[in-house]
Design a protein around this nucleic acid. Structure first.
Lengths: 226, 226
DNA sequence: ATTTATCTTGACCGTTTGGTCAGGTTAAAA
DNA sequence: TTTTAACCTGACCAAACGGTCAAGATAAAT
């Protein structure tokens, strides 16, 4: 009955978040969905759509398997949801490739953004790799519209730079593929890089150096900043 | 009993290949194994070890599933056999990276060999990609010994070139990763490239141009042939 | 011609798969 | 307090999975 006791009673469990109407239920739903999505991203990134199992996703998410199906009707629905998330993040990085400034600054910014994305979200990159290796069954529409439109518009920008004599006469698609490949390699082939690095993940310093090397080789390679 | 009858009897089936001892049986075995291996390489390249099924491999190989297990005891044995084949081809390409000539010629030769391998054997490259993305569970020993030794020795060679002032001061690992990534991208992400290329596979001409662009960007990027 | 060794395969087995469901618990609304 | 709506989950199912096997077919050796 002392203030202390009353205080401790309503403290940790009950009084944490009385907040708005239905706040607790909503919070439960959000937390569970996030946990399942995070687990699914890892498992799909490791095994691809077909190789992944809902049982393993449930285990990694630390929920019963039936609960996974309570929040996401089917394995495919869960997969599509994660693919959308990955694409959203990809588009964010793509936006750093504007055409308002000096080519070297633009390319540097884009390469660095993609390298940082590989570092921060390797699972998304690996999931994308699975999807494309398999033949882009789920995402061919997205690639042939959204991604292709974005890429083609950047190709036009690069051709403009070439026409203005700002950089070497390089096929822009070859350049963009090289940037895609190299930046994503640090996520997709991270396990191999780690082995080559004496079984140690790349340190922050090592990764920063790698990023700078990639930028320098590509910029100089196309005749920018030379 | 006439020569004719005897002749016709032993004709089409029996006398086709009397050749050496057991030649026919050996030929059957070889053909079936090759058919199964080719099918398995495709299916594993599409779905990875876990996602691939022996039933699909059998279907693609056009043999009953039980026959797959007659020639290859388990799914894992079949997978390992294909991984070995892929590694052998990889080592062949690696051998083009010798240290007997001018750096630009060596690097050009190696990049071209790897590009050609991606073109000729995309399934092998994709299978390797699955393997590494998954965490190199089956091949970590091979990578940490054979491949690492090869890579480290090339890194020494490149450091030599840098010390002699033949090329820019670039971290050799970053350079090699860029070569791995870019060349393999043309196999692993072939589906994506095809979509960007208006749903057409890269023609021989386009591929030759891409190869030349990759060589030029990288060589110039590290200060060779500039 | 007979034996022997290899090749072939439909049928089958135990396990794992994605997905369902009834019956329960918990928290918000009445 | 009662009702209602949302959340939770062990147990279950049909289909697909990797792998086995017995019985037959074929070709080499005797």
């Amino acid at each position: 009955m002392t203030p202390l006791k009353t205080g401790s009673k309503t403290d940790s469990k009950t009084a944490v978040k009385p907040a708005q109407n239905g706040a607790h239920k909503a919070a439960i739903r959000q937390e569970n969905e996030e946990q399942i999505l995070a687990a699914a991203e890892k498992v799909f990134a490791d095994y691809g759509f077909k190789g992944a199992t809902t049982a393993l996703i449930a285990e990694v998410a630390n929920v019963p398997k039936a609960n996974v199906h309570y929040y996401f009707s089917t394995k495919e629905a869960l997969y599509r949801r994660i693919m959308e998330d990955v694409c959203d993040h990809w588009l964010e990085a793509a936006m750093t490739f504007d055409n308002s400034a000096d080519p070297a600054i633009i390319l540097r910014g884009y390469i660095e953004a993609k390298m940082d994305l590989s570092r921060a979200r390797p699972y998304g990159s690996r999931l994308w790799a699975h999807e494309i290796i398999r033949g882009a069954k789920f995402s061919s529409d997205y690639i042939s519209t959204t991604v292709k439109n974005w890429l083609d518009s950047r190709v036009v920008v690069i051709r403009g730079w070439i026409a203005e004599g700002k950089m070497d006469h390089i096929e822009p698609y070859s350049l963009m593929y090289m940037i895609f490949a190299t930046t994503q390699h640090y996520a997709d082939f991270g396990a191999q890089i780690e082995i080559f690095n004496n079984d140690q993940p790349l340190s922050e310093t090592q990764f920063a150096e790698a990023k700078e090397n990639v930028v320098r080789i590509i910029l100089k390679g196309v005749g920018l900043n030379g």
